[in-house]
């Protein structure tokens, strides 16, 4: 497929905009010298991913990302940043290792490997439009996937208890 054909689809323009936003903010997440900025950039990246989910017709997943990630997880991160007094730019603490280039090389190699593999495998295959409503997802989640769903809830419960046990002050101290 030619690029001109591809870009003729208006949705792909939206995709480009969102994709650039995601990648740009993701790069800021891993390079920003300010930890709070990094966390806020993650919000942008995740918001972009929610946009992609909407494009792919996964409404419920999109809103879950907004609620759970942007609503809860990021708050958790900000708490973690505050509690651990992570450097927020003004301090001269080194946030990165010296080994930047080898790491970039590994990351690039990983990207090339994956991208090459997917391009070879899928090429120009198109995605058909389909919007999945929350109702359908709920029906399948509570019938076919009810046991994995319960297992996941147990994982969350274990994480809840584990988090409390780990982070609470030792009462004997």
């Amino acid at each position: 497929m030619e690029f001109t054909d591809w870009i003729a689809d208006a949705r792909n323009i939206v995709f480009l905009v969102i994709g650039v936003a995601i990648i740009g903010s993701a790069i800021r997440v891993v390079t920003s010298p300010n930890v709070v900025h990094a966390a806020l950039m993650l919000v942008v990246a995740l918001g972009g991913s929610a946009g992609l989910f909407l494009m792919l017709g996964a409404e419920f997943v999109a809103w879950t990302v907004v609620l759970v990630y942007i609503g809860a997880v990021i708050v958790l991160f900000l708490f973690g940043i505050m509690i651990t007094r992570a450097p927020t730019g003004r301090d001269s603490v080194q946030l990165d290792h010296a080994r930047r280039w080898p790491a970039a090389l590994v990351a690039l190699a990983m990207f090339v490997t994956i991208a090459w593999a997917t391009t070879v495998s899928f090429g120009d295959a198109l995605i058909a439009d389909r919007v999945v409503r929350a109702e359908d997802l709920g029906a399948v989640l509570f019938s076919r996937y009810v046991i994995p769903f319960e297992v996941v809830s147990f994982v969350l419960l274990a994480a809840l208890i584990g988090g409390i046990v780990l982070a609470r002050q030792d009462p004997e101290r």
Binding site: M1, W6, D9, R11, N12, F15, G19, I22, I23, A26, I27, V29, V30, A45, L52, M55, L56, A103, A104, V106, A107, L108, M110, F111, I114, A115, T118, T119, F122, G123, D124, A125, L126, I127
Partner: peptide
Amino acid sequence: MIVNQFLVLAALLFSIGIY
């Protein structure tokens, strides 16, 4: 929309995460 555009974007995001 082709499926590969999403896959490549995801691969890029994943690599940035690795970095």
